Amino acid sequence: MVATIYHNPACGTSRNTLAMIRHAGIEPTIIEYLRCPPSRERLVDLISGAGLTVRQAIRQKDTPYLERGLDDPMLSDSALLEAMLAEPILINRPFVQTSAGIRLCRPSERVLDLLPPVTRPFSKEDGMMVIDQGGQRIF
């Protein structure tokens, strides 16, 4: 299976998502979107492919979201996309794409819907178990 992750190595959710992809035996294409932001077209594809609105895909926490007035409900999707492209930290993460689809993997366990069945135990970096000894998801 081929997988692509739009990754921020400073983000625990993104690191856990990447670890789960690798745990499934897949070495994904890793795009550090803060260094190499997606094009407008690709960003629109990721958002729509994940079944989200542009507003649902914008990151508010630890970003200039409020400073830029992006909480204004009258702002168009186009204006929000422009802000996300100008300041990629506003793009929520991690987006993952496989042949099974696209997801915004928040929480990180959402990535399991895109991967082949994983039967070996897996715990996140904080120790929270996601897949138990019997191969069952715990969440």
Rank of each mutant, 00 (worst) to 15 (best):
A83W: 02
E41Q: 15
M1E: 04
T13D: 04
G101F: 08
D72I: 05
L80Y: 03
T4F: 00
D113H: 12
A100E: 15
H23I: 04
N92P: 03
S99I: 03
R42S: 12
L90D: 03
G101P: 04
F95H: 07
G69W: 05
A57K: 07
K124Y: 00
G51K: 07
I138D: 06
P64N: 14
L66H: 11
Q56H: 10
E87H: 14
R15M: 01
L80T: 03
D62L: 14
G12P: 01
G25F: 08
R55H: 04
Y33I: 06
S39P: 09
A79C: 08
R110L: 09
P107Q: 04
D113V: 02
I138H: 13
L115R: 06
S123N: 09
D62P: 04
L81Y: 13
V44Q: 15
F95I: 09
G135C: 10
P73W: 10
L34N: 08
A57Q: 07
L52Q: 03
I102D: 04
L66Y: 06
P37K: 11
E67T: 15
A19E: 03
I91F: 05
P37R: 08
I5M: 05
A79M: 13
C11N: 11
A100N: 15
A83K: 07
F139Y: 15
L90V: 08
A24C: 11
R103F: 01
E82M: 05
D77N: 14
R110C: 03
I138T: 15
G49K: 14
T98F: 03
S39C: 11
P94T: 06
R120G: 09
I89D: 07
N92S: 13
P121F: 11
R42A: 14
P9R: 09
I89Y: 00
I21C: 00
D126V: 00
P73S: 10
S123L: 06
F139P: 10
A24G: 05
S39W: 08
R22F: 01
